[in-house]
Design a protein around this nucleic acid. Structure first.
Lengths: 249, 249
DNA sequence: GCAAAAGTGTTTACAGTACACCCATGG
DNA sequence: CCATGGGTGTACTGTAAACACTTTTGC
């Protein structure tokens, strides 16, 4: 396969890191491989890109075939192309991540996999995955962490109605950092991106929390008007010296 | 070419947006195409990836063949794979940008190009380039703008010795924003990333400015210790409402 | 002595941080 | 009445932002 100038003897695939959020922690959807290579190992869902198919389309297709979901947040992250990353030939892969609400979907049967499951992200990163999927997962997780500091993408992972505590737990999982309840509420409410539904949890063994909804229209308005959604780094306990910002005036 | 399942009848290339900084503005290195398709149009340097070559290696090779430079800042940005982006077949391309010091290199003759030139970035973005290279350029420029807010990559574009005013002009070009001289100096000096060389400009028709050098060792130290180099967005004149940060505690 | 760019401090406003107690519900 | 998580305000501190004049050199 390698060697001479066989430029058109290569293929490209997409791999899709599908994130969900449930029971207070971040999950990733994995497929247990039923064929060689890497038979029996867990892998990220992916597929070769059809010759007449755009890359994003292929990534959406992988997602939809697996979950039945459409209109999902999807973002291209990085392309992995080490020469020997695929044992069967030169296959580079374009990595995407997507964010889904675990609440509102059921898994489809995926013919090419024995098994499909949600796995905790942190523990998955310590496990061996097929191919270079550990590197891909880590890369996409970092991209998500970064993205969530800049844009309110977290809502893509929550059910339509959620409590502020659920939202806070989500951010804590994504940022791997504990947040102060009062400060978090103050800030998140000051964005005007949440709609107070004036509804409450039911059947919980404690004071029921208010339910909120993400105000997507409002966000798109603000975004269109050039407003930025800035998320700052928190100061660490051990007073790290800040490298001062460069921008002024 | 398109149509049936010719998975291995496709190719991938790298394109490299090579940025330089000279005379107060940001430049990009372009090649005038001497063959069809797009004969006569300016294009980004790029090449097909060899079958036994990693993607990053290919991007470095393109850069080195063109400029003779090694050990240059290089970053993968995005992969472009629209079905019809290349008139001769299915060719997806992985876009990189690199940052070079215009001062210290001479262009090599590039056999596949009639002409190689530095072009002003802003005006190039208003011109038609070959293939989807307008989209690639814009994407890479945005990536650079973002990167420079987070990491001190600007120094890669300056000669080894520079004045604070030159550095400020660079940041102004990258961020498309005017900066306040005093605040800029205060902040940049407070990072301890600059070495005061105690040398001065010569032969300038005004008070000569001090020369500084980037302290790479120091930066790597800080980076290794988990310090962050944070660059904040400046507030605009028209007091835009800030969407408050989400992180606290 | 004039032109041109270098260099330098202080004040004000806001956003980030830290922190502790009472409330509503189910069992 | 107890356990559980929900909900709320204030004071402090550090960084960003605004802003104008003096200095040094070449000609």
């Amino acid at each position: 396969m390698n060697g001479e100038n066989n430029f058109f003897k290569s293929a490209f695939s997409v791999d899709n890191v599908i994130f969900g959020f449930d029971e207070g922690d971040l999950k990733v959807l994995l497929i247990k491989r039923g064929t060689d290579p890497y038979n029996g190992l867990w892998a990220l869902p992916g597929d070769l890109v059809y010759p007449n198919e755009d890359l994003d389309t292929a990534a959406y297709r992988v997602l939809e075939e697996l979950t039945g979901l459409k209109n999902v947040y999807l973002e291209q992250v990085h392309t992995f192309g080490a020469v020997n990353r695929h044992p069967l030939g030169r296959v580079i892969t374009i990595a995407y991540f997507s964010l889904v609400k675990i609440s509102d979907f059921a898994l489809k049967a995926a013919s090419f996999a024995q098994n499909v499951e949600w796995h905790n992200v942190e523990s998955t990163m310590k496990t061996e995955l097929a191919f270079d999927h550990n590197a891909i997962l880590e890369n996409c997780f970092n991209a998500l962490t970064q993205r969530v500091r800049i844009r309110p993408v977290g809502f893509e992972l929550l059910p339509p109605k959620f409590t502020l505590t659920e939202l806070q737990h989500l951010y804590e999982a994504l940022l791997r950092e504990e947040l102060d309840k009062r400060n978090f509420r103050k800030k998140i409410l000051s964005t005007s991106l949440l709609i107070d539904l004036d509804q409450f949890q039911e059947g919980v063994p404690h004071r029921p929390a208010k339910l909120y909804q993400f105000n997507k229209q409002r966000y798109q308005q603000l975004e269109a008007h050039g407003f930025s959604f800035e998320v700052k780094e928190s100061k660490k306990k051990e007073k790290k010296k800040r490298l001062a910002a460069l921008i002024s005036a």
